[in-house]
Amino acid sequence: QPHFAAGADIKGFQAAYDSGSEERLASSLVEAVWILDRLEKPTIAAVHGYALGGGLELAMGADFRFLAEDARVGQPEIKLGLIPGAGGTQRLQRLVGFQKAKDIVYTGRQLSAEEALAIGLADRVFPADSVLDEAMKAAAEWALGPTRALTAAKQALAEGNNLPLSDAMEIEAQAFGESFWTQDAREGVAAFIEKRAANFSGH
């Protein structure tokens, strides 16, 4: 059975002890997750099998997580005497809340797809043989949609997430104003009035 990512190569940790530096262990993964997180387009992690440790951290960098019914996720670093190093203590609490994140990180336990869905760590759960197809279907719908509006929405959500409401509303207002004058917005409004499907162009 394929796995999304079962975590780091623990044997490689010994080299870090020998060299006296742990920075390279997490730095490349941290960078990869940031790149994924900052992509302008919506992203989906389609998770089969295990997504543990760095695997879950990578999945949390995506906008959405679609899990197979038999998927298992978790942050097991505590069982090695370590803590997550690529966002597992920070992105996790933003998704599931502070108290639930403590439970997951402190225990290092694995969560089922059903539990992940219930606490907001997963967005949807599908049979294992269809999770990738469902992710591709959702991605295709976005690709054919108003991509500039999707980009603006993603940026407004991200930038306003940790700001005071008044500041976040200013970001939203600016993004709305910019999206209002796009060709896609004009097409969407016209299609609604004319009672037809919109033909978005990404402009």
Score class of each variant (00 low, 15 high):
A59N: 06
W34A: 15
A198I: 03
Q90S: 02
R94E: 04
Q174L: 06
G97M: 05
L165M: 14
G81P: 02
E22F: 13
A51S: 04
F98K: 10
L92M: 00
G87C: 10
G49N: 06
A143C: 08
L56A: 10
G108Y: 00
Q174T: 09
F98D: 11
V73N: 06
K79W: 07
L165P: 10
A122H: 00
A71N: 04
I78N: 13
H203T: 15
V131A: 02
V105T: 07
S27F: 12
K102A: 10
E159K: 11
E187P: 02
F13T: 13
I193P: 07
T147H: 00
D123Q: 07
I10G: 14
Q14L: 14
T89S: 00
N161C: 06
V47K: 00
Q93W: 05
E194P: 09
W142F: 07
T151E: 03
L39K: 06
E159I: 11
A59Y: 04
A197S: 05
E134S: 00
I119V: 10
L150H: 12
W34P: 08
A122K: 02
E114V: 15
G12D: 12
R38G: 15
A197D: 08
E69I: 07
E23Q: 15
T43R: 11
A173Q: 13
Q1H: 14
Y50A: 12
A191P: 01
A158Q: 07
Q90W: 03
S166V: 06
G160K: 04
A32N: 13
V73E: 06
F176N: 05
G7V: 15
G49W: 10
A190D: 03
A190E: 01
R196P: 08
A32I: 13
L111Q: 02
L67M: 14
R91K: 13
E170M: 07
D133R: 05
D37N: 11
W142M: 00
D70P: 03
